[in-house]
Design a protein around this nucleic acid. Structure first.
Lengths: 245, 245
DNA sequence: TCAAAAGTGTTTTGTGTACACCCATGC
DNA sequence: GCATGGGTGTACACAAAACACTTTTGA
């Protein structure tokens, strides 16, 4: 018996004695990452072809079992690093999913995170050629309960974009207000008025005018902005002052 | 080897082979419930004296390991039922906590829920005399990482009370607007203007005037209200239309 | 000179907030 | 009649939404 299991036998909880102790360790724990990207004016998610027979032909989120010596965030960052080559990505825990039959091979409880990444970022290396980006709104069916997980994470993202400067993780460092507006529209699924959008963004005081303009556009170039550096923390939304309500 | 563990060996994940398979089952999973109540104009939480030596003298949240044959919500409801005698309580998942050293007896990942209950409800039976209600704002130290869990759940509750009619689970069926306002104040930790509060509540259209008035009050009695029955679902905030923002 | 998008301001409407008085009841 | 909270309305500030024209650039 491995030491951690021995240790756990010392746990005192109300009902522990009613069930064979070893059964409590028949549950595996995984992390699944919904990795959002933005390209061609669409919100996309990074998926992999499922390697389970039960789900042949279906795609699934990127996930892995949690190792005994790593905490939840460490596991998530490991998956991101392994799959994309990047670290220091924005990451946020969303929800735990623990349905009895969610995994065909056994009981697996998963903790879902979402992550935001610039698809065009030079460091992004999709190590595995079974990985591919899929437009979020065109996804019909995924392996496991991953469609539900995706929808839950999208909902959380939609809640957060209005109050916290997280969206910039989906854009290159320099961007125009048009690109930013198109991104909001893609995430929220609404059309926004250009003038009102600009006013609202200015009020939030997130942007730095870097005194450059677009080039290579077949029309009048727009000004470029950066996210203010002090807001650039990849994780920990607690650092931003939430909107007072 | 128990069957679920055998099954799990079939799991194919990127890094599985690098670590002894059995280690993946050295992680236990629990549920912890932050059970909020409201009494004497204070928000309270139901705690139990910790039965671990390491935490002697400290209180902890109510929790238990998840059984192999129950899903997360089932485990939470079981704990609520066992400890309070009530079922059909409002319950909401908040966050998973998985720090390596959060449990002194071994690796335990916990999924935190918060629950709302009317302390005065006739069916509430605290089965175990080590259970007691503690004012949330006076709690300084708890066993494990339960202080952090409590704060996280309180934060979530504070977010939700403004947009969803969840707070009524903390009140008796009939209540006055004064009681409701005092409850909001206790949760949010702010003073509210009485006239503005009433306007805001009326707009939300959550309340039913039941044409009764308080008695036993040493002043002019206020009107009594109920939550509209169609909003009374104990769980599933998805049923309420979220505030458009 | 045309196409495409940038940039900009005013009006209206709704919401949040601050604030004061009279009323009904129990004691 | 006094203490206590119940019940109500108005004015101001700010935010959100609707809406159109001129400017700049590349092709």
């Amino acid at each position: 018996m491995p030491p951690a299991m021995e240790k756990a036998l010392q746990l005192k909880t109300a009902e522990l004695e009613k069930i064979s102790h070893i059964d409590y360790f028949n549950i595996a724990i995984s992390v699944d990452c919904v990795i959002f990207g933005y390209d061609e004016k669409e919100l996309k998610v990074l998926l992999i072809k499922s390697d389970l027979e039960e789900f042949s032909g279906l795609y699934s989120l990127l996930g892995d079992l949690i190792r005994p010596d790593e905490d939840l965030e460490t596991a998530s960052y490991r998956i991101l690093k392994e799959r994309t080559g990047m670290d220091d990505m924005y990451l946020e825990q969303v929800h735990a999913f623990g349905g009895l039959d969610r995994h065909p091979s056994g009981r697996v409880i998963t903790i879902a995170y979402y992550s935001l990444i610039d698809i065009k970022h030079q460091k992004l290396q999709l190590s595995h050629n079974e990985l591919s980006w899929h437009p979020v709104h065109e996804i019909k069916k995924l392996a496991f309960d991953h469609k539900l997980i995706l929808e839950t994470c999208l909902g959380r993202l939609q809640q957060q974009v209005l109050d916290y400067p997280v969206i910039f993780n989906l854009l290159p460092e320099k961007f125009s207000l048009r690109e930013l507006q198109e991104l909001y529209q893609a995430i929220l699924g609404v059309e926004l008025d250009r003038r009102n959008f600009r006013k609202k963004i200015v009020i939030k005081d997130w942007l730095l005018d870097i005194k450059e303009i677009e080039n290579d556009v077949p029309h009048r170039p727009g000004k470029l902005y950066k996210l203010k550096p002090e807001l650039k923390k990849k994780n920990g939304k607690k650092k931003f002052s939430a909107t007072v309500r």
